[in-house]
Design a protein around this nucleic acid. Structure first.
Lengths: 198, 198
DNA sequence: GTCTATATCAGGATAGAC
DNA sequence: GTCTATCCTGATATAGAC
């Protein structure tokens, strides 16, 4: 995978992958500020010197991580847009994907959805403004234009469609829910679609 | 207001109120870890010594703040339960309250809903497990028992009812939405209720 | 590119006068 | 109860050998 100029992402090497993996786990388990460089050294088996050779500073690790994960999400959503034609099918597929991801890589979801990025990456836009979230809102907006979704304020419709699912994800990640989310997919999707269908 | 044993809350004095107010603003604007004691000293016009006289440590300030705000929310919700008889009216009133609060005291909502408390108050349960959230879920559960709400997994129903509104609150607090939330109350409520009504 | 050892400093917490 | 001055830990980041 190529380094892009805009995201200033570090080239993928075994060492950087180790560091990013360890950082993802530590940041989501303990929080960014409770994670020290020595913590990352221990968890990644990469020395302080090497870490600072690959990343400008601790913040750089977080930036790199965030950029990588946002990009992954973006391309997943683009695949969904390509694979499905209707707003109904696209939105359902997005929720199914997010539910699966929550079960298989909870740390990724935790970092993407529930970290306060602005607190440790100062010039970062809020996640809600990031491309993947825009894509989600567009899916709903397109559905409204096409007559699948009732006429209403677009962002309200998008919140109605995805709000319930995102809430379940938070409950699951916070340990309030013991059941794997995919079991609830049909139920929550029925609610979501009823709420905005014509 | 009395100090309760369990919450170990500090007695309310002018000085403590100053500190808590300043801390609320700073914690929500910059984050807990980006806020130093000297920052709180400046913003509250209370000296370091006085702060440590009233609070055990920095964490103690956060604990006190959290306990106070959770309690406020709890009693608001109890008032709503008393004032309305049906799940429909109760849940709508809760959303209306949260929307108003978001406009009038955004810092309070930010701190309650979107701070990662566990990162700075180690033994804290996630917000979703706190009394007010339990109250919200109970309102929906009662509605299901009473036949107002369709039969389904209770927590899924609750997520469907409140998920959209909570999503809008987040978008508003993150600056994605320029319109005051109360303008969207009818629209989102219609979605929420449609999603679970029998 | 990787490592160890270390410089530097911010900020949480305290001492002790008033 | 309030204040100022100060201590001291712990974490970031660097130097410089290999």
């Amino acid at each position: 995978m190529e380094t892009t100029a805009e995201t200033q992402r570090t080239r993928a090497t075994p060492a950087t992958e180790q560091v990013l993996g360890a950082a993802l786990n530590l940041f989501t388990e303990q929080g960014y500020f409770n994670t020290s460089i020595p913590d990352i050294v221990k968890a990644s088996s990469v020395s302080t010197g090497s870490i600072y050779h690959h990343f400008r500073d601790k913040e750089g690790i977080a930036r790199s991580l965030y950029a990588t994960l946002v990009e992954r999400m973006e391309s997943k959503f683009s695949e969904i847009e390509a694979a499905h034609a209707t707003a109904h099918d696209r939105c359902r597929a997005v929720i199914a994907l997010l539910f699966d991801l929550t079960e298989q890589e909870p740390a990724v979801m935790r970092f993407m959805l529930f970290s306060r990025h602005r607190e440790f990456i100062p010039d970062q836009k809020p996640v809600c403004s990031s491309r993947p979230f825009v894509q989600m809102r567009e899916m709903v907006a397109v559905g409204m234009k096409g007559g699948e979704v009732r006429e209403m304020t677009p962002i309200v419709a998008a919140s109605a469609v995805f709000g319930g699912a995102l809430r379940l994800i938070q409950l699951r990640l916070d340990g309030v829910l013991d059941t794997p989310l995919p079991e609830y997919l049909d139920e929550i999707w029925q609610c979501a679609w009823r709420s905005v269908a014509v």
